[in-house]
Simulated scan of single mutants.
Amino acid sequence: MADTPIHDTLRIHSFASTEPGPRLIVLGGVHGNETCGTVGIERAVAELDSGALTLLRGQLTLVPVANPLARRLMQREGERNLNRSFRPSAAPADYEARITNLLCPLLDRHEVLLDLHSFQSAGEAFAMIGPRDNAGMLEPFARAAEEGRLALHIGTPRVVEGWLDIYAAGLAQRAGGAPADDAALAFGWGTNEYMRSRGGYGVTLECGQHADPAAPDVAHAAIHSALRLLGMVAGEAVAPPQPALLRLVSVTDRDDDDDQFVREWATFDPVAKGEPIAVRADGRVLHAERDGFVIFPNTEAQPGAEWFYFAVESDRRL
């Protein structure tokens, strides 16, 4: 944490039609080294400013860089991960908490969120959605159909569900099986979890690998797709074929700098039951417990941090 507060200004572009309609907010640069969302948003802002794109109804807010400090550093985090513990705090203890206090009121004024990201490993773009409708304690939700429809229209070949469930399971795993308390679970909250807690819904779009030259195009196209789906701009919203839907079922932390993958994995690489995935520093081999897919393999993970996720095919349809 910095010894003195870092002062910053968020650049926020807001557009409001005289016709009532949906309220959509689009975030880019929640992580500083993920630039594709920023580029996609800047293109959309230029189109709106020039008149090439017209907002016909509703309200649209675009935030190109949600974490200015992390962007200046061109790294994932400024002082910590902005996409954790994402809720207001009366006494913000770090830079990201102060930024969260600015972003939360923005999200409160909207009902739909599109959060644009990219990832470290190779792999195709995909969308992440929240839980199915439920009245449980972890993440009660009643807008799964709308959220799934948004993910479907974004048009990625894959959609992934199960983030908060697997985050809670990961906490229990680290605690030797003990269930996580509310404060620990709240650390798993990101922008979408906050949006759902406020009665809205949201989709995270992982636009591809950080340096993929096509990733900004994916981000830009997704903004247009969301606006068409919500009837906020002209054009027909055409749903592509059903994507492959996967469910996260486990997360594995890196314990030591000498923990190594058995090969260079890409997100969505399939693995068969029993296939080796990684080797611990002490020589223990980590095998796939069932047929599935490696998600977010991170060769740069620090000890104690998430190293890779594992997903299986889901029976859900959007």
Rank of each mutant, 00 (worst) to 15 (best):
A2G: 11
R11S: 14
R23M: 04
L27Y: 13
G29A: 06
E34V: 06
C36S: 15
T38G: 01
A52Q: 14
N67A: 09
R71N: 03
R71W: 07
Q75R: 12
R84Q: 05
C104K: 04
L107E: 03
R109V: 00
L113S: 07
H117M: 08
A122C: 12
A125W: 10
M137T: 09
L138A: 00
E146R: 14
R149I: 07
A151F: 10
A151Q: 03
H153Q: 08
R158H: 10
V160E: 05
W163K: 01
I166H: 00
A178R: 14
G190Q: 11
T191F: 09
E193P: 15
E193M: 01
G200S: 05
G200H: 04
Y201M: 01
T204G: 04
H220I: 04
A221D: 14
H224R: 11
V233Y: 02
A234K: 05
P241S: 01
A244T: 15
L246Y: 06
L248T: 00
T252Y: 02
D256C: 09
E264I: 13
A278L: 08
D282K: 10
G283C: 05
L286K: 05
A288W: 04
E289A: 15
G304E: 14
Y309S: 14
F310T: 03
E313Q: 13
S314R: 06
R317W: 05
